[in-house]
Design a binder for these strands. Structure first.
Lengths: 226, 226
DNA sequence: ACCTGAACACCGTTCAAGT
DNA sequence: ACCTGAACACCGTTCAAGT
């Protein structure tokens, strides 16, 4: 055995190295920037080598999504009120897709069924803890999941639509201006809320939606149910 | 002028013919089936000819989405209660993406900002009619939109994931079995609702979510607000 | 067992050339 | 003005050949 026999070759390929390189590449070049050729070049190898460790591009994207989401859902809130635990889980996903917009596309596109299952379980378990009866449980948890995935899809889409340098306020400013320019008679609502779009905070709005659904869930099963 | 001078050449290319051929192709071969080569072949021309009428594939998909959604939102409900009008608009989108799953991907991916704006306006206007105060209006309408887009994204993803022949009950059966097979201690929620997944109706569940959010909206602004 | 890189079968898109 | 179709610049993926 040579003197270096025990040292791990840091440049040896492995599934983990490929996945983390893919995440880095997705983060700084976007969804379109990840190609097997570019990824192989980054790992100083040929594209064919990657196929020994991952089956195809879809599996690679799913693995990258799983890795990011595992970190996002790491905080399992046991000592919280169910409402708070739901907010924690939802915000965990939100923050993950804010940091890695491409995760939003993968998640809402069901690229990783196991990741979606994990999110659904986290949300559903707390809805259960909320005391929602079995008959309403599935619908309530599904509403939360669909909402979260809807936000995820839009974040990914927004990141894809603009050129990398564009700042969020600039985007909101442009869209707000578009709404202001619409015919008030044909678009009374958009015209009214154009100002709020410009000033709103994405994270705060996301949480407001979660709270709205939570209010609906408790109201339908509480004293004020219609 | 020849005898046929007034007759429109039915084989002449036009934006409308290209878009409707694209819709037909998307419907029966899925998102991956639409290529400029195949579309050109269907219209008995070369791929380059299409570029005279549409700028690129993205514009074509946006135009196809707009065309389908315009039909879906055609019924403008003026003589309804706001709640009913919201359900009508939401169900219009739902039915459109059920009939054309690829529309779900385009819509949730913001491929056509104008289409999303139209849906947002429809929903928001009725939330306004519900008597929601200006301060809560934007959040309330956004919650509805995000929920609708989340469902849209998942429908498209489901259609993409399975081979064309698979029937919906078969999919639900498979996913339900997967949930049943999970460790009950690790996945108490999924284990509990596995049975309901198998029996649930997609459209009914979609509407239940809409109603949940509507309940939340009215509760937050009504006598039972916390 | 793992890596290499040329090659295959596609894409979207362009553009000189036609009518 | 509109259409043609070969060509360009890419992809994901495969696979004989190496080590």
């Amino acid at each position: 055995m040579s003197r270096w026999g025990m040292a791990a070759r840091t440049d040896a390929l492995s599934r983990e190295r490929i996945v983390s390189a893919a995440i880095a590449m997705l983060d700084d070049t976007g969804e379109t920037g990840l190609t097997f050729r570019a990824l192989a070049a980054r790992l100083t190898t040929g594209p064919g080598a990657l196929y020994w460790h991952v089956a195809n591009k879809g599996e690679l994207l799913a693995a990258a999504t799983d890795a990011v989401l595992a970190g996002a859902l790491a905080a399992d809130a046991t000592e919280q009120t169910p409402q708070h635990a739901i907010r924690t889980a939802a915000v965990g996903v939100f923050d993950a897709i804010t940091a890695h917009p491409w995760v939003g596309a993968q998640l809402s596109g069901l690229a990783s069924p196991s990741a979606v299952r994990e999110v659904f379980e986290r949300l559903g378990r707390q809805v259960q803890a909320l005391g929602v009866p079995p008959s309403a449980l599935f619908h309530a948890a599904s509403a939360l999941l669909n909402y979260v995935l809807g936000v995820a899809a839009q974040h990914a889409a927004n990141a894809r639509a603009v050129e990398p340098g564009t700042t969020r306020p600039a985007i909101l400013e442009a869209e707000s201006a578009a709404w202001t320019g619409l015919d008030p008679a044909a678009y009374p609502f958009l015209h009214t809320v154009a100002g709020e779009l410009r000033e709103h905070d994405d994270r705060e709005q996301f949480l407001a939606g979660i709270d709205l659904i939570l209010t609906g869930i408790t109201a339908q099963n509480g004293p004020c149910a219609s």
